[in-house]
Design a protein around this nucleic acid. Structure first.
Length: 270
DNA sequence: TAAGTATGTTAAG
DNA sequence: TTAACCTACTTAC
């Protein structure tokens, strides 16, 4: 679930569900000690940058910082008095709704300086309308690291995870191991534009769909297929299966302890 | 019941 | 580069 689009969607849902309302706040699991200090306060706003979520309350300078990590989740139920199931780090609720946070890497109350420090170390977010893609292009064009590594580096681009990385490289026809310095001019701009498009779709749908209409399995005479992660993709976790465009078996390897997926025929070094 | 897996990040070696 | 961490779910034994 948690690449950048997920956090932006959750920020939107938090505002829609609790914005401007006095909320109950608790930590059923007990591991978010600041939760009780937020009880009875008005939730003012929730924003996301990259994979980080920030929640603010009336008359409180500190903000709650949430990072979902690999398997954290924030789920909403349109009811009050919901039974606690499993490990719930933070629960927000009103008479009309309950939100439960499970398994986050981070759930902490941060002062303005600490929040600023997180923003300072993050790169441009494709989902931020004010983002400056030229900063990203400069940085990538000067790096010898593989484009696959650079795309996942949150200091360069904030919010891209393993699925968007694999999919945008396929859509751009790029070999994942191409060095940043070897990318032809304009490549990074096309990657950025594609990420903006794909991630905006991700926020709207709550899933990662990257397959163009002409390559949909249904359009190719095959049955529709949706991966466990909940979207329709070209290469992510499709190891050994035929490429939706050329039929070549999708390959996988490990790069920096993360799984890499690509089509050896459609994705060439240039 | 245990092991393995996952869309992530940090700190230790 | 490796291990550790946070949780739920699937698969193996």
């Amino acid at each position: 679930m948690p690449e950048g689009h997920t956090l932006h969607r959750l920020a939107r849902e938090l505002v829609a569900t609790f914005g401007g309302q006095v909320v109950r706040s608790s930590s059923p699991q007990g591991r978010f000690e600041s939760a009780s200090g937020l009880d009875g306060r008005e939730l003012v706003d929730a924003t996301a940058h990259g994979k980080h979520l920030f929640v603010s309350f009336a008359d409180l300078a500190e903000q709650v910082h949430v990072h979902l990590g690999l398997y954290g989740a924030l789920t909403f139920v349109p009811e009050a008095n919901v039974e606690v199931v499993g490990q719930v780090r933070w629960r927000l609720s009103t008479a009309a709704a309950t939100a439960d946070l499970r398994g986050p890497t981070a759930c902490e109350l941060l002062n303005p300086g600490e929040v600023a420090a997180i923003y300072a170390r993050l790169g441009q977010d494709p989902l931020d309308p004010g983002a400056d893609p030229s900063v990203v292009a400069d940085r990538i064009s000067r790096s010898k690291s593989p484009i696959a590594t650079l795309l996942m580096d949150q200091r360069v681009i904030a919010g891209v995870g393993n699925v968007y990385r694999a999919e945008v490289l396929f859509r751009q026809g790029l070999d994942p191991l191409t060095a940043g310095t070897d990318l032809e001019s304009g490549s990074v701009d096309r990657i950025w534009a594609d990420l903006v498009e794909l991630m905006e779709v991700g926020v709207d749908r709550g899933r990662i769909d990257t397959v163009r209409p002409e390559h949909e399995p249904s359009a190719m005479g095959r049955a529709p297929r949706v991966d466990d992660h909940g979207g329709e993709v070209y290469v992510y976790r499709r190891t050994g299966q035929p490429c939706l465009v050329c039929g070549t078996a999708i390959r996988t390897s490990s790069l920096g302890a993360r799984n890499l997926f690509w089509c050896p025929r459609c994705q060439r070094r240039r």
